[in-house]
Amino acid sequence: MGRYFSLSAASLLLASGSAGAQTSTQSALESAGAEAQQIEMLFWVMLSGGTVIWLGVVGLLLHSALVNRRRLAEKSASSIILWGGVVFPSVTLCALLAYALWLMPGLRPFAQASPAALRIEVTGRQFWWEVVYHPPLGPPVASANEIRLPVGERVELTLKSADVIHSFWIPPLGGKMDMIPGRTNRLSIMATKAGLFRGPCAEYCGTSHALMALSAVAMAPEAFRSWLAAQAIPAEGAGASGGALFLRHGCGSCHVVAGTDARGLIGPDLSHIGSRATVAAGILPNTEDAVASFIARSDLIKPGSRMPAFDMLPPDDIRAIAAWLRGLR
């Protein structure tokens, strides 16, 4: 049985790479957020500036090596060095630096008169993301491994770490910001297009660093609000029969499932796992097979994670728990 699960886990991992690429984008060059757009523009300006300078230098080199090989008089050589080697680079660098600095206040608009309506607190953990929404009205809403945000509204992210340094980065939506133990960093993003985006952990954080990703879903504001309201209450499927197995096998000592006795705080909140785009922190498609494989052989799918393998459980129980979790929408 162990072999069955390890094989299916490996094939799932292989498959998830291509499946993820079709549905979500992780490119900073396909910006879908106000901040990301400025960063993309900065990239193109720097790239264009660098290309022009490179072409100029290589052109001058080829010109002096192939076309005009005559020795320059010392006076004109000195003036080429002065104007081409000192004045031009200083002025160009000054202009590029000024442009980059000019962008900065817009990328961090925290001092503006109207603060962001929604604050999302994301805490990096080996190797998953704890997410807590702080809406302006109502109590905080806990989730994990996925953030959702309303299109056209500025969101403030509060970034923390519970263990080692992680880094939060959803390239199509905004810039990268480290999550440092003992510190709270702030990042502002405003999605301009609806869509599903992927964010990798961008700072090496341990064995499964490469298997730590985040889905970000930008949705219409009304849809977002009704989604958030639904997240604040227990999922409809929480009372179904698989829940008893979940509790009997001890899953509740590490995971929270709202509406049940599962109140563990060590692993991700699973209250609405069925509605997430991916499972296991962005690395597996959200299917019953994937959830069952992860329960059985989490040690193979995510080496070094704190979730032990549960392949000693009867396969039928694993299936039933996976089906129940998929029903928590």
Binding site: L97, A98, P105, T184, R186
Partner: peptide
């Protein structure tokens, strides 16, 4: 170059 950020930044961001 060292002083240029002060031209553009108008507040502390923590």
């Amino acid at each position: 170059f060292t002083a240029m950020p002060a031209l553009f930044l108008t507040e502390c961001i923590r």
